[in-house]
Amino acid sequence: MDELRERLRAAQQEFEAELDRRIEIQRERFRYELERGKVRFEKDMRDWQAKYRTGLWRYLTRGHFAYLLTAPLIYGLIVPLVLLDLSVAIYQQICFRVYGIDRVKRGDYVVIDRHHLAYLNGLEKLNCVYCGYANGVIAYAREIAGRTERFWCPIKHATRAADPHPHFEKFLEYGDAEAYRAWLESYRRGKVPKEDNA
């Protein structure tokens, strides 16, 4: 298992390097820069994109009526999402300091940048902002929950979960009482490497 984990880690690093390379290629192809976290397209590229924008009225009248009816359900989730965002932010600021767990950087998860695309109309931009926020908050909360689980109960389940968080593979085997007690002695006394804390 350790050998497989190491191969998986190496493959993940190779995958991330390839993603970074492809992003750089796309930046050159679509001529944009990141300036202090803001996307800046060259003017001719913005003009080219604008040619593909669908007007708001046309967008609304050509869409499925059922899609419009479900919009309040989608946007109604903003309240629990904001509460989740606020709750996990406060939780980690207090509890992670007490536990000595590295805090999660929200900006690594909540990425909102699609509204810079000139080929989107105002409603499409709003939808993209909403999706970036919603999925980012859920990923942010998942990472905070994963680090919490790593601290309090790092035991694998008896059955396989569909998509466990990245910390799960470091967890102790289900049923290994001896390893769990040994882990408690070392981990809670701060004798665990820093990368296991993140």
Rank of each mutant, 00 (worst) to 15 (best):
E6W: 10
L73E: 04
Q12A: 10
H64D: 14
C128A: 03
P72M: 12
D163R: 00
P166R: 14
L86D: 12
A89G: 07
D47C: 00
A118N: 08
P72A: 07
V82E: 00
Y119V: 02
C131W: 15
Q49F: 07
R9I: 06
F96Y: 15
V129L: 12
V79N: 05
E42L: 03
L60E: 02
R29H: 15
L34T: 02
I78D: 00
E178V: 12
Y59A: 02
C131M: 12
F30C: 13
L73H: 08
R36P: 01
R103N: 05
R106A: 14
G76W: 09
I90N: 07
A66Y: 10
F41H: 00
K191Q: 11
R21H: 08
L34A: 01
A141C: 14
N121I: 05
Q49R: 00
D2A: 07
A141Y: 06
G122T: 01
W183F: 07
A11E: 02
E33Y: 01
E3I: 10
D108K: 15
K191Y: 06
Y99P: 01
F171R: 06
C153K: 14
M45G: 04
G107P: 15
I155A: 06
R5F: 12
R40N: 05
K43T: 09
R5L: 10
D2E: 03
L184Q: 13
F168N: 03
R160M: 05
L81I: 06
R5T: 10
D163T: 08
E149A: 14
Y187E: 00
A10S: 12
A89Q: 10
A182P: 09
A177P: 00
Y109W: 15
